[in-house]
Simulated assay, not measured.
Amino acid sequence: MEDFTNETIDTTLLPKFEEVQFSLLHPDYWKVILAGLTLFFVVIAIGVGTILYFNEELFLFITELSIIYIVLLLLVVFMSRISFKKKGFAFRTHDVLFRHGIIATNTLVIPYNRVQHVALHEGLLSRFFGLASIEVFTAGGSSSDIQIPGIAKVQAENIKQLLMGKIQKQL
């Protein structure tokens, strides 16, 4: 029978995920984001325009509403661009990493031995640009733990095969 040991680990010697070289999202994914934002803001403009058309009292505030609308539009586009540029992913020997965030940067690290399921998705606009997203599921959740958007479809299929191979080795 083995003797139980519980040695202290020097955490300064552990590999640092901060030093990992992250792959960035495909540049065409920015076009997908812009198309989605355009659709959203067009719908909002139509809604506000309809309200203004039927309510003449609010029409007096058209200048103020227009300024608010433009400032909001620019702010959302600016923040979306920052978010797009900060997203990245990496695959190491034992885990997958996904970095995201606007003000604070979050890095999710999921060991392959926790991966239960992998899904590849193509939205309408993403398909047009030849892009897909990978969703990584771990045990116990109904939603994905990591969703990596904006990957070239061929690369996404290769990533899915890699992850499926890691899952098969566990069984």
Results as ranks from 00 to 15, higher is better:
Phe4Cys: 03
Leu72Pro: 01
Ile70Asn: 11
Lys87Cys: 13
Glu64Asn: 08
Leu37Ile: 03
Asn113Leu: 11
Leu39Thr: 06
Leu52Lys: 04
Ile134Phe: 03
Arg114Lys: 14
Ser83Thr: 00
Gly165Arg: 08
Lys31Val: 02
Val20Thr: 09
Leu97Arg: 07
Thr11Pro: 04
Phe89Met: 10
Leu58Gln: 03
Ala152Pro: 07
Leu124Cys: 09
Val118Lys: 01
Glu64Gln: 09
Gly101Asp: 01
Ser126Asn: 07
Thr50Asn: 11
Leu37Gly: 06
Asn106Gln: 10
Asn6Val: 03
Glu122Met: 09
Ile159Trp: 05
Ile67Gln: 08
Lys86Tyr: 04
Leu60Met: 10
Val32Gly: 05
Gly140Trp: 05
Leu97Phe: 12
His121Val: 11
Phe98Ala: 04
Ser83Lys: 10
Asp95Thr: 04
Arg92Phe: 09
Ile151Gly: 01
Leu97Met: 12
Leu25Gly: 03
Gly165Asn: 15
Gly36Ala: 10
Ser23Arg: 13
Phe22Met: 10
Ser66Trp: 15
Tyr29Ala: 02
Ser142Pro: 03
Ser80Trp: 06
Ile44Gly: 04
His26Gln: 07
Phe41Tyr: 13
Arg99Glu: 06
Asn158Leu: 14
Pro15Lys: 00
Leu37Lys: 12
Leu131Ala: 00
Gln116Ala: 06
Phe128Arg: 10
Gly141Asn: 14
Ala90Asp: 06
Ile151Lys: 02
Leu60Pro: 00
Leu124Asp: 05
Lys153Gly: 02
Glu135Phe: 05
Lys153Asn: 13
Lys85Asp: 07
Asn55Cys: 05
Phe22Ser: 02
Val32Pro: 02
Leu72His: 12
Lys16Tyr: 03
Phe137Ile: 09
Phe22Pro: 01
Ala119Phe: 08
Ala104Lys: 12
Glu135Ser: 15
Ile110Glu: 08
Leu24Asn: 08
Gln170Cys: 04
Gly36Ser: 11
Val118Cys: 04
Leu120Thr: 11
Gln116Phe: 06
Ala139Phe: 00
Lys166Asp: 02
Lys160Gly: 00
Phe84Ser: 02
Arg127Trp: 02
Ser142Trp: 01
Glu2Met: 13
Ile146Gly: 08
Phe129Gly: 06
Glu64Cys: 05
Ile51Asn: 04
Asp95Gly: 07
Ser83Ile: 05
Ser143Ala: 13
Phe128Pro: 07
Gly36Glu: 14
Leu125Ile: 14
Gly88Gln: 12
Glu135Gly: 05
Phe59Ala: 15
Phe89Ala: 01
Lys166His: 09
Leu124Arg: 12
Lys31Gln: 09
Ile68Cys: 05
Thr107Ile: 15
Ile70Lys: 00
Val76Lys: 15
Leu163Cys: 02
Ile167Tyr: 03
Phe84Gly: 02
Leu34Ile: 08
Leu58Asn: 07
Leu120Gly: 03
Thr107Asp: 07
Lys169Asp: 13
Val76His: 14
Val118Thr: 03
Asp28Val: 00
Pro149Asn: 12
Val77Gln: 06
Thr50Met: 15
Gly49Phe: 09
